[in-house]
Design a protein around this nucleic acid. Structure first.
Lengths: 138, 138
DNA sequence: GTGATTGCAAATCTTTTGCACTAAA
DNA sequence: TTTAGTGCAAAAGATTTGCAATCAC
């Protein structure tokens, strides 16, 4: 069997109609071939450098936004002034470690949110986020 | 009965040991005497101007942060790069209107979150936020 | 080739900070 | 007085954008 390092990323790009450029493939590989991940633009830019993928920070931002619009990523906002991008796009929730700024998925099936008021007239629910903020200590 | 326009704000400031300066009183009055509110620093600065309370944007930021640290406000993060401050500091959740960027409280008693995994070892839950994101349309 | 994509630097936006000035106690 | 608080302008971060150069098709 041949090694096809970019296959998953390539397929994802194709499936959403984004031209598979060197940097999109490189970033896609980093994002999609390492299990579920939560990264900031800065994080990903650093990882790209280490992995030898040459890409500017501006392009990392643009790419993350394009991937998010295309539904390949999900943006998670838990802290003012910093966006996280989550490779897990299915319904789920998050633990947020306040001391380290890191995120951890909570499977959606596991959580039950009851008695939410109905969406106000003229609107519909696009997403329900549950964020469990954790502090260090007992 | 005498009119005591700053009473509520004054009491709150005293209760947390913040010196009641002209601008803190002015901002406090705007914040605490208008029912539950969700404001950004920019919002509040604008409202202060209109109300004739002269205060710089920097001081608005500083004041919002001090009030939040003192427990008079609660910071709500729903959008990247923008912080909302909520005058309702009791446990509750939020509707977020994506199209307008506005927030609406959902009373906590009304919502039941079941089966949340326990806080990981070495941590404890500081807060559980439920954000119901609404889009315009049905 | 031709249009999409990228890189870079500059621009934007929100928020914070340093410091001289002002006001509360 | 004495010390906390304020305003302003500059600084700091995160993110976006304009445009010429580059790459995918």
């Amino acid at each position: 069997m041949t090694v096809r390092p970019y296959t998953k990323a390539l397929d994802r790009l194709k499936s959403v109609g984004l031209r598979p450029t060197r940097q999109r493939l490189g970033l896609g590989k980093l994002l999609f071939e390492g299990g579920d991940r939560h990264v900031t633009a800065e994080d990903l830019h650093g990882q790209a450098s280490q992995a030898g993928v040459r890409v500017s920070l501006a392009t990392v931002y643009n790419t993350l936004n394009q991937f998010t619009e295309a539904g390949l990523l999900r943006e998670v906002v838990v802290e003012a002034g910093r966006s996280y991008f989550d490779t897990n796009t299915s319904a789920h929730h998050h633990f947020f470690y306040e001391s380290t700024g890191s995120l951890q998925d909570i499977p959606a099936e596991q959580v039950r949110v009851h008695n939410l008021p109905a969406a106000p007239a003229g609107t519909s629910v696009s997403r329900v986020d549950v964020i469990v903020r954790l502090r260090a200590g007992t």
